[in-house]
């Protein structure tokens, strides 16, 4: 083997080794983070987690009010963000497909998708919290809805554009108006893709912390009043993890495990769903 061939062989092996090492690097951190969350989280799991409220410093308690607050805000955000996102996505893919507005909105939507969530939190603070005069669950839900909106818009747009034009033509040939073609034919054909977007968005906003810091804030006590500060899992985890108390740390890990398990399960479920939809 000539020296030149040897050099080429070594460069090739180095690239091969680097690619393998890079993949292992990524996987190691995934499992390290998951293992950490699992180990500390399981230790802290107790039935009282779902029966008691968040405790004062140095005492045992649970996260019932936080689970409730998070659940309500996330569901409210989905209820607000999904219809608007589907409507906007429908405009991009159908009614305004080749318009200049659609091109601009598609561009802007992609930026909103990656925009810093803390800035979105501050925007809702300026808009809602200042107007109301205090932090509230409704402000938190609006901030989460604003994060969900671009996700649903994009996936709806993509799912609808994947529907073959022959379906639209078949609908029009029956004399159906455009809105009925979209509502009764295209939505059904694109259902799996749209549902994927909503569920992925739900997973994403379940773990969002930064936008809730200045909107829902937190509440140590049980409150179902959306006009008042509302307890929620991410902010409780943040406050408790940063505190010097062992009991609070344990609760933070228990919350972290529940949150991670929920988000990952949803992600895996969505991927299975998407694969089923594709193979059909």
């Amino acid at each position: 083997m000539s020296a030149r061939q040897l050099r080429r062989r070594i460069a090739d092996l180095a690239a091969f080794a680097f690619a393998c090492a890079a993949t292992i690097f990524g996987l190691v951190f995934l499992f390290w983070i998951l293992w950490t969350t699992f180990r500390y989280g399981v230790e802290a799991l107790k039935p009282s987690l779902v029966t008691q409220m968040t405790p004062p410093p140095g005492e045992d308690g649970g996260l019932l009010n936080a689970f409730y607050g998070s659940g309500v805000m996330v569901l409210l955000a989905v209820a607000i963000g999904t219809p608007i996102g589907i409507a906007a996505g429908t405009y991009l893919a159908e009614h305004g497909r080749f318009s200049r507005l659609a091109a601009i909105v598609r561009f802007v939507n992609d930026i909103l998708l990656s925009a810093p969530s803390i800035v979105i939190g501050l925007f809702v603070y300026e808009l809602v919290v200042r107007t109301m005069g205090h932090f509230s669950g409704i402000a938190g839900a609006l901030a989460l809805a604003m994060i969900l909106l671009p996700i649903v818009t994009r996936t709806t747009d993509e799912a609808l554009r994947l529907v073959p034009d022959t379906m639209r033509e078949a609908g029009f040939a029956l004399g159906l108006p455009r809105w009925k073609v979209t509502g009764q034919i295209l939505y059904k054909a694109a259902r799996a893709g749209m549902l994927t977007g909503i569920l992925l968005g739900l997973a994403r906003i379940s773990g969002e912390t930064a936008p809730l810091l200045f909107t829902a804030l937190n509440n140590q006590f049980w409150s179902a009043d959306l006009a008042q500060p509302l307890a929620n899992v991410p902010v409780v985890i943040f406050q408790y993890a940063m505190s010097p108390y062992d009991q609070w740390h344990a609760l933070a890990w228990a919350g972290a495990l529940t949150l991670t398990a929920f988000v990952l399960a949803l992600n895996v479920f969505v991927r299975i769903l998407a694969r089923k939809g594709n193979s059909k």
Binding site: T23, G26, L27, F29, L30, W32, I33, L34, T36, T37, Y40, A203, R204, S206, G207, E208, T209, A210, P234, I237, F238, A241, A252, W253, A256, L259, T260, V263, L264, N267, V268, R271
Partner: peptide
């Protein structure tokens, strides 16, 4: 493996923070 790498993006950032502070 592709899905596993994608799951890194699904982990909430606050979990990265806790792992970073207490372990990493």
């Amino acid at each position: 493996i592709g899905i596993a790498i994608e799951l890194l993006a699904a982990i909430p950032s606050i979990i990265y923070g806790m792992w970073g502070l207490f372990v990493f």
